[in-house]
Design a protein around this nucleic acid. Structure first.
Lengths: 209, 209
DNA sequence: CCTCATGGTGTACAAATGTACACCATGCTT
DNA sequence: AAGCATGGTGTACATTTGTACACCATGAGG
């Protein structure tokens, strides 16, 4: 999808240009008053109007708080694979939605050969006997199908969980690898469950939080 | 002129890592309180101490004002590190010797910020209760010292092994995380043992085998 | 004539924010 | 035993900062 950016006035382009250059130079965006001072303005409100216009036209994204400006520029390209780190999953949204991303990590292409990789931080100890501990990151390919025996990421009532996908005489189940937890049957009368990915690896990197 | 960056503690690395990921994600750095909240701290001052330490060690540059953090290595973005994969270890040679290398993998700098990283493929199941399985790769920093409680790579009669390094009333031991194995005392009359690295992470990448 | 977007000045204010200080605990080094 | 770095909690405070409101001026379009 291509988002059309609306035309800017010369003045607005000047302001946006300054914000971009300042950010590239310092690593963080300027404050409203720094922008005003640099352009000889004597009131912060003049700048605010421009920032409002730039936001409205889609060239800026803003959060509340100081220096919370993000310039809408294309994401840089690189040779390796950029793998998003997925956090809390919101209801009704695809697992790879922007809102879920906590950050991203660049990994060697030899480590990630599949199509839609993402990293998910593991909550709980339900897979401890598979060597997947709380706080580990599972390296996942986003896909809706899986083979019995696969370890999968499933959405259970809008909460992402890691379990082993198995076939039993009574149907399919999500099997924890921890005797303290019960298997979750996947039946029409069971909980709302959906497979969203297959676990292809595990990263344990304590210093990454 | 090349400025040497001082070593970071695990906690400091975690904080720095968060600042970098947040900045890459949002386009602007986090506030002190955002950092505190994300890491479960209840006081902004805890974070400030870490930021002071990171500044003193040359990993951060700061200006006065909100969110005025600049990561030292944020300019060379997507910097990556080539991490050698170590195989069989030959007698009397340093662990990182060319002869031991089976290959190498390029990893994101944010994942590996210590000096002498290497990957070692795990043999056996002696660390199974620490979630380290046969065939996993441990991500190690080559170093001769370790703290009690650390998981280390040790050379035992010229065979690289992964164990937990512990202190007991009788001296130091290498403790397997599997009840089927006995601890290995590190005493003058014991086996020839030498710590060659500290395990800082685990990678499980079955498709790499 | 009227309206609207642009581009400002000036003042005011609540909220966000970095910092300072007191205090605590642990582990290491001297 | 004393000192120091680390890693915190809790409170307080001055400043920074974004935003709101009033007001002014210019130019374009109906």
């Amino acid at each position: 999808m291509y988002t059309m950016l609306q035309e800017l006035t010369t003045r607005q382009a000047t302001i946006l240009n300054f914000v971009e250059r300042y950010t590239a130079m310092h690593g963080f965006p300027p404050t409203v008053r720094e922008i005003a001072k640099h352009h000889g303005m004597k009131s912060p409100n003049g700048v605010k109007k421009h920032l409002d216009a730039l936001t409205r036209k889609g060239h800026l994204t803003r959060k509340s708080g100081a220096r919370a400006l993000q310039c809408a520029q294309s994401t840089p390209r690189h040779e390796s694979v950029s793998v998003p780190i997925i956090g809390r999953v919101a209801a009704g949204q695809p697992i790879l939605a922007e809102e879920h991303r906590l950050g991203e990590v660049t990994l060697d292409r030899s480590l990630v050969r599949w199509n839609q990789p993402f990293l998910l931080k593991v909550k709980g100890d339900s897979m401890i006997n598979a060597g997947i501990l709380e706080g580990d990151y599972v390296l996942v390919n986003a896909q809706a199908q899986a083979q019995p025996g696969d370890i999968v990421v499933a959405l259970l009532d809008d909460d992402a969980t890691v379990k082993r996908f198995l076939q039993t005489p009574d149907g399919y189940v999500l099997q924890p690898e921890n005797p303290n937890y019960a298997p979750i049957p996947l039946r029409p009368d069971g909980p709302t469950a959906r497979i969203v990915g297959k676990v292809n690896g595990v990263l344990r990197l304590p210093h990454l939080n």
